[in-house]
Amino acid sequence: MIAYLSNLATQLAIFGILAATLNFIVGYAGIFSIAHAVFFGLGAYAGAQIALLLVPDVVLACLFAAAIAGGLSLCLALPALRVRGEYFVAASLGLQMVAVTLFAELKPLTGGIGGLVGIPLPTLFGVPVGVLPVALAALALVLLATALLARGAFGRTLTAIRDAESAAEALGKNVAAAKTLAVGFACAGAGVAGALYALHTSFVNVESFTMEYSVLVMAMVIIGGTGTLWGPLIGTVILLSLPAGLAFLPFIPPSEVGAIQQILYGLAMTLLMIFRPAGLVGDLSRGRATA
């Protein structure tokens, strides 16, 4: 049971990082990306390759993953600078679909659909270490950084851009730099989550980085409440432990187990949105049409 819970906790921490970083650009900068799984994937491949080719050092893998994902975040920052709202959603959708094809085809880097197997267990400066403590530490760091950035001048610039971009520009805020930095931070964070995921499961392939996962992470943020510190985390806990918890229902016949779990899961999502449209932590009175 403890091993089971620890695996679940590790996945919660990893997806918590994803949700928290996505929330940073969605909630504070108003950039609605459904391509977050792409950067999760980039980080996973980067971390896996470091572990496979060099040394399975967890910090090194995370740093390299953050660099790769953060660097390539320009692919997302570019459309973010040009368009907003639905247009940006569609652009990120395009990026997501193209990236999945690339992940499946660039076999030397990603192993194709077959993926990368036999990723060694992680170490920290040569000492074997579990992924869970590292993931929790990374999650804490991401939350801390989010809180600090959101409260500081940078956060105020972002919220100004989110609420009235031209006004922010008129006030002399460097909109382009702020957006690029925000996207870079979020994507680097997703990359770290990816590296941790690769080290945790010892196997990565393209099927973990599809649009379904981007939407899942987005749903975590929305269900928890955008623009709040703890909301995305609560959304993560709900959306990940709901299917896991439903698996404990004893009375479902084996051939219907998947369908019934999925139906309850989908129903919960819809009902939550109908009755808590601003998210569980979100402030209803503050509800805005954000896009």
């Binding site: 091993a3 089971y4 695996n7 299917p243 698996a247 998947g258």
Partner: peptide, 24 residues
Amino acid sequence: RLQAEDSQALPQPSVVGMNKLVNV
């Protein structure tokens, strides 16, 4: 006793299901 877990043919749910089967 047959205990069924849904893998959805995807890695992540499979890992959760396998951990449940093995550890719980």
